[in-house]
């Protein structure tokens, strides 16, 4: 029997609504479950005490510090590299072979599994450069991992800057560098920052690449050459080795809250960026007519 157009419309629509609601329900189930079990553990002492007995007791102060340091190293290294690459792609190349190679490499880097980054970080930073399992090794590995995100978002932001700004700046006697530095950067900075914030989120969430490069020490790190265990790795260990479900849930809840804050921050920035751009376009369109 062939369905009438009306009933097939109804069926398709319900399936699509159901799929969308299912996704929201699953996400809600995960987040609520973890938060419900984890929030009771979150306390000031949990955040400020060093773990004891492999995490069975005490808090997660040292994993928090480790996470901050590893992420900071990653972002500080990847930002200049990524933004510089994006500037080169958006402002200096004219679509030649070099551009294609750079873009292909960036896109390929984006797809490499984090465990492969971990293997590379282990063989290159830990072993070859002799940095050992350390904050530095982990941070450098993550820097490579977040590089494609920073390149892509920065390039989009820079390309989004209206060409008339550049033209105007040149017509007032600016050089290319002056134009980039004084006009393009300030106009693109929110988009670039948005990409960096997303990369921070990725660094905080990463596990596989860090297990092989940053070590698993629970001591409070004393230098960038010290090994550390980030929150995500700590959570993984607690969960897998069944050390302390309560502390595992607590750590997971903190991770989710952090990611939530990071996403909200990135969204606020991005919305401002878009609405600014919209205003500019409006202003221009209005005058054209």
């Amino acid at each position: 029997m062939k369905l009438s157009a009306k009933s097939s419309e109804k069926i398709a629509k319900s399936i699509i609504w159901a799929a969308a609601m299912l996704v929201v329900a699953v996400l809600a189930a995960i987040v609520i479950y973890i938060l419900a079990k984890g929030l009771p553990t979150l306390s000031w002492s949990f955040l400020t005490e060093i773990p004891e007995g492999g995490g069975a007791a005490g808090g997660i102060a040292s994993p928090i510090v480790g996470t901050v340091l590893v992420t900071a190293v990653a972002v500080l290294i990847a930002t200049p590299l990524g933004v510089g690459t994006a500037v080169y792609l958006a402002e200096y190349t004219k679509g030649g072979a070099i551009t294609k190679i750079i873009r292909f490499s960036a896109e390929s880097l984006a797809g490499i599994p984090s465990i492969v980054y971990g293997l590379f970080g282990f063989i290159f930073f830990v072993m070859y450069l002799g940095l050992g399992w350390s904050i530095l090794s982990g941070g450098l590995t993550l820097a490579i991992m977040i590089l494609p995100t920073i390149i892509r978002t920065s390039e989009e932001a820079i390309r989004g800057v209206p060409g008339s700004y550049r033209e105007t700046s040149f017509s007032l006697g600016a050089t290319k560098w002056q134009t980039i530095y004084k006009v393009v950067f300030p106009a693109a900075i929110q988009g670039i920052t948005n990409g960096i914030i997303l990369s921070v989120g990725r660094s905080v969430a990463e596990t596989a690449a860090l297990v092989l490069t940053a070590g698993s020490s629970l001591r409070m790190p004393t230098s960038l050459f010290a090994p550390t265990r980030t929150m995500a790795v700590h959570f993984y260990t607690l969960a897998m080795e069944d050390i302390s479900p309560a502390n595992a849930f607590g750590t997971a809840a903190l991770l989710i809250i952090l990611i939530f804050i990071i996403n909200v921050g990135a969204n606020i920035l991005l919305n401002r960026f878009i609405s600014n751009k919209g205003k500019k376009k409006e202003a221009k369109g209005g005058k054209r007519n």
């Binding site: 996400l27 969430a205 596990t207 596989a208 995500a232 969960a239 997971a252 939530f260 996403n263 909200v264």
Partner: peptide, 24 residues
């Protein structure tokens, strides 16, 4: 509302998904 939800889905650490899978 939906788009940020999807974004959050992308940002949650994979170990959290694994953990949820393990216990649920």
């Amino acid at each position: 509302i939906f788009r940020p939800v999807i974004q959050l889905l992308a940002g949650i650490p994979s170990v959290v998904y694994g953990f949820w899978g393990m216990i649920f």
